[in-house]
Simulated scan of single mutants.
Amino acid sequence: MSKAPTTLRTSSESQFVSLGIGAEVFAVPVDTVLEILDMQPVFRVPETPTHVLGLIDLRGRSVPVLDLRTKLGLPAIPATETTRILVLEVAVAGRRLVLGLVADRVIEVMALDAADIEPPPDVGVGWRSAYIAGVGHRDGKFVVIFDLAQLFSTEDTNALGVVSPSPEVRAVA
């Protein structure tokens, strides 16, 4: 079976940055990603939730950083050579915020057709599906697409304050 060229785009196709946490693959819309950084020291802010790692300096701006593993209820692990910080611009509670998200690895920019994305499954019991905008299918595997407004709660953003985006921050690595 032949595959369509990757340069062919349809109006129902969306671009995502895929990232890995353990063996699982997640995705965020590519238009929310400002930069992808190597892991760097994070200034810990006292009395913040455990998944809020603290602040990093991004060209003179303080950017709050959250650990995706602990946010999702997984155990924290030490950073490795593949650990990355995705700096995202996200709309939360009517505000545009710049936040960092630590992932085990960044995989690729990928296209998903709307027909390959389904709503979060209803399993009949309570689970954290509020973070999930949809579940994509790619090469026979699942890709969980985050609902970033839900993932970054007001509690998280208030714990560290907010950072307004600026034109000089708008550069994808």
Rank of each mutant, 00 (worst) to 15 (best):
D113T: 04
A115C: 12
E89C: 07
V125P: 10
A130G: 07
T82W: 10
E108H: 14
L97V: 12
L99D: 00
G124L: 02
I85N: 01
I77W: 14
E118N: 10
L101G: 01
P120A: 03
S129M: 14
I107D: 13
V123Y: 10
W127I: 07
G94P: 05
E108D: 09
G100S: 14
A114W: 02
V109M: 12
G124Y: 01
A111P: 10
A91Q: 04
D122C: 03
R128E: 13
D122F: 03
E81N: 15
D116V: 07
L112Q: 10
E89W: 00
D104L: 14
V123M: 10
W127Y: 11
V98K: 01
L99A: 01
A114D: 06
V92S: 08
R84V: 01
A130K: 12
L86S: 02
P121W: 00
M110S: 02
V98P: 02
L97F: 05
P121S: 03
V102L: 07
V109G: 09
S129V: 04
R128L: 04
G94Y: 09
V92E: 09
V92H: 06
V98Q: 01
V87Y: 00
V92T: 09
R95V: 06
L99H: 01
Y131L: 15
P120S: 02
R128G: 14
L97S: 05
D122M: 15
M110C: 13
T80V: 03
L101D: 02
V98M: 04
V98G: 04
L97Q: 12
P121E: 04
M110T: 09
A115P: 03
V87D: 00
E81G: 13
R128S: 10
P75M: 07
A91L: 08
L112N: 15
T83D: 11
A76G: 08
A76L: 14
V87T: 03
E81H: 13
W127R: 14
L101Y: 01
A79I: 11
T80E: 06
E81Y: 11
G124C: 02
R128N: 12
A130F: 13
I132E: 07
R96Q: 13
